[in-house]
Amino acid sequence: MIQQLPFIYFGGMALVCAILVVISRVAIYSAMALLGMFVHVAGLFILLDAPFLAGVQLLVYAGAILVLYLFVVMLLNVHGRGPMLQRQTPWAIILTLLAAGEMGYLVLKSHFYPKLPAIPHPSVPTLGNTETIGMVLYTQYLFPFEVASVVLLIALVGAIVMARGRGGVSQG
């Protein structure tokens, strides 16, 4: 039980924060609850022996993406007027129950093997997590890596074009 305590804390807090994102009326509170969820998911990554990913999660998600959300929420000045839920909520609940039932069935019916023992390589020097990720990312996954950079460039250009508006800067 004492070994599972960190998982229970990080996982439970991540779930609670996720629920808070959905149920808060004010968009800023939702964004702040999402920050808590990102931090606790980073804790889960550390428990799973992925410290580099935990750092990336904190830097990219909590540091960059969340700030972008906060900027937009403050820019748009959205207040919690009117009903919080949209019109098709009954249908949405039916759909969600179906999806949850399907996922629960799959998890219950699956057979999970216990953790495999690590295969020791006596000839190869053991690399750390970050070194291993770098090695695999720049050799085996080099092409997807380059494609990801193109995706980011397109996102950059697209965001500028879409958010610029009509009467803004000079019409090129």
Partner: peptide
């Protein structure tokens, strides 16, 4: 599926 605020949907 249920929220009305589009920023919260992205979150």
């Amino acid at each position: 599926l249920i929220r009305r605020n589009i920023v919260v949907v992205l979150l």
